[in-house]
Amino acid sequence: MTSTVRLGAPITIAALGKQFPSEQGPVTAVADLDLDIAAGEFIAVVGASGCGKSTVLRMLAGFETPTSGRLEVAGAPVRGPGPDRGVVFQDYGLFPWLTVQENVAYGPRQTGASRRDAAARAARYIELVGLTRVAKRFPEQLSGGMQQLMGEPFGALDALTRGSMQRELERIHRETGTTTLFVTHSVEEAVYLADRVVVMSGGISHGTPGHVKAVVPVELDRPRDVNDAAFTDHRRRISALIEH
């Protein structure tokens, strides 16, 4: 799952906490999260299942309300979903009755853009991800990879397509400078894409609140070589943090 913020927007997460009700009383999913993300930075979040990665992403997207702490984008508190943030879900999230062009233009239209402006913006983004030739097709006429490029991160892709999508995402991020928070179970993917990797630990299934265990800078030249010794060192270090 991925959340992106408009160009140049820093993110502030301070003492962030989230509780959910249960029959046994409130359950703390995450607690005391602190993280400052610079404008244009690419942050990958990794950790065992249930450690609160998706909860943090949903709060940033505005789908969940924090129980405590502070969550700001460009200095403004997050009070719900908004056009300044975009979320790539784990499922396709496409309207089957709309074409590729119309699906991409839907967001701008909902924020008040004219039909002409929305179409122009959609065409620009479709070209950016290399889907111009299928812009008039419907989702059911696309391959799984094409649908996932539009509306899903890379967990369900085969290895070859996943590598291609990682390179595409890296290119798009480099060209747009968008602030990105990327949740993944793949340590290799995190090291390949991120400026910093946030390792989360704990969570409901572990009986402790999810929290940030470590933040690991990835100071490797791009494009990155997964077979390089320094890359392997980063991957091993982060894997060890997750496992222990």
Rank of each mutant, 00 (worst) to 15 (best):
M1D: 12
T2W: 07
I13V: 15
A15E: 13
F20D: 12
Q24K: 14
P26S: 13
D32I: 10
D32V: 11
A38R: 15
A38I: 08
I43V: 13
G50Y: 00
K53T: 07
T55Y: 10
R58E: 09
A61I: 05
T65L: 06
P66Y: 03
T67Q: 08
S68I: 09
V73W: 08
A74E: 01
A76E: 13
P81G: 03
P81T: 06
G82V: 06
Q90V: 11
Y92S: 13
G93T: 14
L94Y: 08
F95Y: 15
V100A: 10
Q101K: 14
Y106R: 01
Q110W: 00
R124D: 11
Y125N: 15
R133Y: 03
M146H: 11
Q147A: 12
Q147Y: 00
Q147S: 12
Q148C: 01
E152Y: 04
P153W: 09
L160C: 04
G163P: 12
M165L: 10
G177I: 13
T180F: 12
F182R: 05
T184C: 05
S186K: 03
V187P: 06
V191R: 09
V197F: 08
V199T: 07
G203F: 01
G203L: 04
I204W: 00
H206Q: 15
G207W: 02
T208W: 00
V212Y: 00
V212A: 02
D221N: 10
R222G: 04
P223T: 13
D228M: 05
A230T: 12
T232N: 06
R236T: 12
